[in-house]
Design a binder for these strands. Structure first.
Lengths: 348, 348
DNA sequence: TTGAAAGCGCTAACAC
DNA sequence: GTGTTAGCGCTTTCAA
């Protein structure tokens, strides 16, 4: 028997065994597809009896709604996109943790990618992520390529930049001044009596600003213009890189002692470890200041003097900034400085 | 002037300033929307001249394709969903890193959520994630609720369980035997001459299996049936928890020395730290064996004896397993045991 | 090489 | 309360 409608094109065989949709559920419950949709999003607008039958049908069929279709139709994906330099770095992963906790509670899901500290990669990822039509986007830092900024602006969604602050964010930023941490660390160290210093820094842009803040302020205060420094590559420092850095400082820069400003607790820990295994006393011979106040910082021996940033609060503040924008509030805060704290423990 | 078509319902004002779609681009380039689609997915099927005009139009408009619509129409989302206990734990984040690196190269994006080691949370997240219609799903471990297994099976997509192995995976698994790491560690420690032991373990199911493997095997070999142990909560151990555990072992279990089997390098590091600050020698008075071979394990003082799992390889193997399934290969490997290695350094 | 038509599974607007 | 209709922006036929 020929198909009576010559122009009826079907892509696939009839709907036997096809995906379970709201229509499937509706058929089984004796209602239309729309009613199923309503039962799921506005339960109060459906009669109790209908609700019962629909729920039973959902149970039997194992129906899982298609959020892709929902997002397309409603123009709301409930998706938040996040770009961080590296997820293996606790600093960023803990921030994401705090952020996603709040966003999840509000029904949003996170899609994360790593930029590897590379602006080109970030730019490419922004494009890919925007194609998923997220409701908002979270970026690390305040430096993004011109093309990236353009795409972001064009997307017309909230953009939260975190872990740094600027007077001119794309949309809004939540963080603290990296330069200022360096300066305040220098002031603290000078106040504790240190007159000679050195720096050990990772190569990424923010670590360098922390280092430079320390350098210039310490020079100002102590008059010492010759502060030796070891600078690594962009990317996370490790305990090992800290050990190597101290060795290099001693071997190549004839470092004689004083305080060492590190761009991370990891490298600070490495320096302490290396110093001890060389029989040097910490902080008497070599004092060390870390950055980040990682979970272990208070429990090393000696415990690390470091800069504490309330990452939990930062993550939450970023989430709050985004939620505020979703609510469409008038004139929301553009810059949130959550500050930091220099914590003195045993290592300096 | 009244609308001549009384039943013409438009949701929004006419398409002025609306989103930039393929139709917009097509109009500007003087071709139909379909041709724009083709230009993007099958460039070779479009004439060079047309291609030029389309690309120019894309550039001018800043067009970003809507992957939601694409996925809905093609039934392919290029999305992979991953569920891990915690992203702040380097063990899992480094695995994700390796996995996503390969998947991204193949055009897939990762959507990650944290289960917090809770099966109920995992179940809820599986539902949410499946609603995004991922092309594949990556799960941590081999224990999932019955409802979760059912949903997963019903989704009809590749499921890779990693970081553990079982004879009966949902689809396939890539990992190693946790019990076996404990047993082999016990054998190594016994071989090194240790005759007394203790354990310090996190409370999650896999850590407990490592601990039990160590316990029973060490008891078998040494005849010592009285191995004291400290067991923490589910969730990541920290340097601090290791320090506390050693204190508890000494105070509450009158631990006199011997080898301590830890469920992580973090707690092992804590024990070493605590031992030293108490004036105990490592490994002479107290020997410590960690787990994970974290980046710092070889650089603590003394360096940690530990169990190494090639996480990079594991992440890659998991990715390969998934890609194999995407290709629809016949009868693919269901269980991949990537093994582990006991590494002896200074702490035991 | 290009286009027209149909439909992916859902939500929004409206009528009953 | 519930159903009908008209899309959301794309891919997939199929015909030209």
């Amino acid at each position: 028997m020929k198909d009576p409608a010559p122009h009826k094109k079907t892509r696939r065989a009839p709907p036997e065994g096809g995906p379970v949709t709201m229509a499937t559920v509706g058929r089984m419950a004796g209602v239309s597809q729309v009613t199923v949709s309503r039962a799921l999003s506005n339960p109060e607008k459906v009669s109790a009896a209908t609700m019962q039958r629909i729920q039973e049908a959902i149970r039997v069929t194992g129906f899982v709604p298609n959020a892709l279709a929902g997002a397309l139709a409603s123009r709301k994906s409930s998706l938040i996109t996040a770009l961080v330099p590296s997820i293996t770095n606790v600093v960023y992963s803990s921030l994401l943790h705090g952020f996603s906790e709040i966003m999840r509670a509000e029904g949003y899901q996170l899609m994360v990618s790593e930029t590897g500290f590379l602006p080109e990669t970030e730019e490419a990822l922004i494009f890919t992520h925007l194609s998923r039509r997220p409701d908002g986007i979270l970026l690390t830092g305040i430096h993004h390529s011109a093309a990236a900024r353009k795409m972001l602006l064009g997307a017309g969604i909230p953009v939260v930049e975190f872990w740094d602050i600027t007077e001119s964010p794309i949309d809004c930023c939540v963080g603290f001044s990296h330069t200022e941490t360096g300066r305040r660390t220098a002031e603290a160290a000078f106040g504790w009596g240190y007159r000679r210093a050195a720096t050990v820094s990772a190569g990424d842009e923010r670590a360098l600003r922390r280092r430079d803040g320390f350098r210039s302020r310490f020079a100002e205060l102590s008059g010492d213009r010759d502060i030796p420094g070891i600078t690594g590559e962009a990317g996370p420092a490790s305990l090992q890189s800290g050990r190597l850095a101290l060795s290099a400082l001693i071997a190549e820069h004839a470092f004689q002692g004083g305080v060492i400003h590190c761009s991370s607790d990891q490298s600070a820990h490495g320096i302490v470890t290396e110093a001890r295994s060389r029989g040097l006393r910490v902080p008497e011979d070599i004092a060390v200041i870390g950055f980040g106040d990682q979970d272990y910082a208070g429990f090393t021996d000696p415990p690390l003097t470091t800069v504490r940033v309330d990452r939990d609060r930062l993550g939450r503040a970023a989430a709050r900034a985004m939620l505020t924008r979703f609510r469409g509030e008038e004139d929301p805060e553009r810059v949130t400085d959550i500050g930091f704290e220099v914590i003195r423990r045993g290592s300096a």
